[in-house]
Design a protein around this nucleic acid. Structure first.
Lengths: 208, 208
DNA sequence: GTCTATACACCGATAGAC
DNA sequence: GTCTATCGGTGTATAGAC
């Protein structure tokens, strides 16, 4: 038992160090750009020498991979919460979900680039790190399926329109709201195209 | 006169070298990623040593800048041609323009990243290099104005939807057509939202 | 003018002492 | 687990040959 709790304490400390490294990495990515991240900078801010990072991550790519997983896990939580909160109409449910994703994405360029764009050439997330991204997409699928939107093309169109607004916002007016305030209009446009009623049935299926 | 033609020949040769350097740079950007571009690689493939590039470009950033200018100049030509060719309806004119931009953009990820995304952190194009980008946007403005679409929000929405499709295509199905074939549908959706008639008046204004 | 040679400070990564 | 030392790369810059 004592041995076990000692082990736990060591594992806990290791995990804390890992988290601190990742926190610092995000901080630096926001300051200097995702691709300008250097192991020396990370290590220095954590209070180590660069090679010591290799005791916690096997490579720089592994750090990117852990950052990718963390970002999508966070996004999954945001989206799950948005999908779970009540909405007055099918469109309101869509707006809620889209707004949650937009605000989460637009608040951090570096994070969005790592999650969705190919900014780090050659970076491919591992299967484990990709899992929360898939889970997030499944939240979206379920929300659209509740409005009887199930065709892949319809889903793809929604994804493209929303991420188009995010991209435009981040690339052309970072920190502003020039494209952000177009989101609700875009959702209505999509809802029109997909035949989702403006009001009427609640967003949950088969409820009495 | 002889002096002049000699000067011209030298300038011509210099310009040819510049073009060759830029061609090689694009080639390597496509192979290895935009941010993985190195002066040594460029120089080696051109048949020089790295420092010799400084006789033609004052820095690596100047190479990016020239690439940016070239890409937008090419895009401007494509868009001008698309805007000039006749169309049967206002929507057909919009489809033509959008299709031209989509195909141009989706055919080269690195080029699209340099033109439209913030992949190279800290890179800001010079005013001269930005000019063809502005001119391209003006082609779009003029085309939309011909359909009485002049509000900034309307234009922003069009830009976001089209570039959203391009981003999704490049990020999730590079080389494929999963989002490409949604373009015409997206344009119709936009046209509906903007009140552009499906058929009727030609795309030119005030023609008898 | 254009090139080669060389140098500098930095990068990711590894080896091995402690 | 963290360190120092070091490796082959990188962008950048200068000196000097031709």
């Amino acid at each position: 038992m004592l041995v076990n709790s000692n082990r736990d304490r060591i594992a806990e400390r290791r995990e804390a160090t890992r988290r601190e490294i990742l926190d610092v990495a995000w901080q630096l990515a926001r300051e200097r750009g995702l691709s300008q991240l250097t192991l020396r900078d990370i290590a220095h801010r954590v209070g180590m020498r660069a090679p010591s990072l290799y005791s916690h991550f096997e490579s720089k790519n592994a750090i990117y991979d852990a950052m990718f997983a963390g970002a999508w896990t966070e996004c999954l939580a945001v989206m799950t919460a948005a999908a779970g909160s009540p909405a007055d109409s099918p469109r309101a449910a869509m707006r809620q979900l889209a707004r949650a994703f937009f605000d989460f994405s637009a608040s951090d360029l570096s994070r969005y680039q790592l999650m969705n764009q190919r900014t780090i050439f050659g970076f491919e997330p591992s299967a484990e790190s990709y899992a929360p991204a898939v889970a997030t997409l499944e939240v979206l699928h379920a929300a659209l399926a509740a409005q009887n939107v199930t065709r892949q093309a319809d889903i793809d169109l929604c994804v493209a329109v929303i991420s188009g607004l995010i991209d435009a916002q981040l690339a052309n007016d970072p920190g502003g709201d020039r494209w952000s305030h177009l989101l609700e209009r875009a959702i209505d446009m999509l809802a029109d195209n997909l035949g989702i009623p403006a009001r009427g049935t609640r967003s949950t299926r088969r409820s009495p």
